[in-house]
Design a protein around this nucleic acid. Sequence first.
RNA 1: CGGGGCGUAGCGCAGCCUGGUAGCGCACUCGGUUCGGGACCGAGGAGUCGGAGGUUCAAAUCCUCUCGCCCCGACCA
Length: 586
Amino acid sequence: MLFSHALIPTSKEAPADATNASHVLLSRAGFIRRVGAGIYDFLPLGYRVLRKVQTIVREEMDRAGALEVLMPALLPAEYFKETGRWDLYGDVLLRLRDRKGGDYHLGPTHEEIVTDIARREIKSWRDLPKTLYQVQVKFRDEPRPRGGLLRGREFVMKDAYSFDADEKGAAESYERMRQAYVRIFDRLGLTYRMVQADSGAIGGSTSAEFQVLVGSGEDAIVACDDCDYAANVEAAEPASAAPPTTQPAGKPERVATPTQRTIDEVAAFLAIDKARTLKALLYVAKDGPRAKEVVMAVVRGDHALNEFALARALKTSEVLPATDADVERETKAKPGFAGPVGFDAARLFVDRDAAAVEGGVAGANETGFHLKDVWYARDFGGEVLSVRQVVAGDRCPRSGGKLESYKGIEAGHIFILGTKYSQPMGATFIDEKQQTRTLVMGCYGIGVSRLVATTIEQHHDDNGMRWPMSVAPYHVHLVTLGKDDALVAAARTLYDALEAAGVEVLWDDRDERPGVKFKDADLIGIPLRITLGAKGLAAGQVELKPRTEPDPKKAELIPLASAADVIAARVRAAMAVPAALARPSV
RNA sequence: CGGGGCGUAGCGCAGCCUGGUAGCGCACUCGGUUCGGGACCGAGGAGUCGGAGGUUCAAAUCCUCUCGCCCCGACCA
């Protein structure tokens, strides 16, 4: 492609609203343009990258035996009404009416639609297993789109769905998809972790997230430095201390703490370590069997409560902090003085580490007072479980290694769904014994357009993007300096030879000053840059510099005559699918 | 939805407080010089000042309503 024929509108300035590196660079390099909130055009370079990501995803899905289909994005409401998601999905669902007043929506995900295919077309155990997938535009009316392609209202997703006869088959399908995902993420050149996730709202037993490790990521994850274990902090189970086996006789001592409400204040006032204090937090279950009940969670003062863990314990979708009025009613004290002693044990949830505190300090449930020398069992009861958040430095629950913390962007998520959709929608088959059974499902998503942005978040520097060869918009960026006939002819020969060898070349043939061309080349981030100038031509040489080499003086000089062969070999080497690296498994 | 903030040329912004001439940088067009890391000189084109209503002799500027957007939180690929 000749730069002069392309549409690559680069600029020095980014839109004011762009805060993420990927958003800034995609805009500046002319890959995308904003059309509305969370809605983007893909300009030619951006679309080339998107298509390359799609191609890798498709190749690996196909290799894993999945079958590509295309379901509609415009959907009649009846399918989501069948499973209740028409109501449950809430405002995130983009709804619309047709001219006859019928309810429709744009698809945010396709469990119902694919299950409808399955219940109509999969009749027999002989049809199983089947995995269907599609690469399609999804629509979600996000509360807050942000970060350019990182979170849009319209985005490209690969969604796959497996159908099996039983749990065992579903586990096998899940494993095949897991391996396909590992290959995909490896081929994309990403550093990532497969982490244990909270499957919460979507339901299902087994689930894993593919988290791309980036400092700017929104998700907090922990990973063991010694074994495979990695988990979203929402899902991570800390390795906790065992409760003490013996306790002294006696009872807590009431101490006046007139103005000390927070853990920090109390610990400082009493000159004790925060780890010796007990933090009592009141929450209300949003729904489920214990909906609206006010419960107390107790964690060690230096720990944070994991609200997801508490929600799991209460079998609710979400827990909400109690209001000050609730706190005062339940503890007979102003906020800041709540404690477990005397609290209804049936509504008390005590973290393992809090239960292990020997002679701790807790709120007295009396405004202005705390209790010293508080022991679990002797002084208060309640269910002991893990409800605190994991922190870096915790021991790994599996190997005992040390947990490190990372930030990540969720780029893929795989689930075993069980019969959550097949059961209510009546997706059944006839087994070998002529029994009617319900299909067991799994679902597997990859944010394809998000991956474009995520790749940049992980691969960029101050000057621009640094694409991995596998998804770069072009393999090679040929920069010619000057317009004289001999130079152009030499460049043309090289260009043709590279193209003939299957190398994708962007040739900057513009009548621009060298500085402009180099700046644009760095911004666009094509992995290999070839420079051909008058001096080089006279010496019969071209310069070859990888985008990852920051020092322009370190370009490699290659004889013009063999340049096409050398460069084509480099490109092929970089495109080779890396040997399957041992990846952490959940 | 809660809390902040912004809508003025394609992009980034000033002007608004204290009403009266719509401006700067980048980009764009033309001419010239320049040419290995975002050049310089000269000339030019381009704006319903988000929209509606009001106050006023006069509104980008003051008032009311409204639409859109962004940032920080709770959710997701």
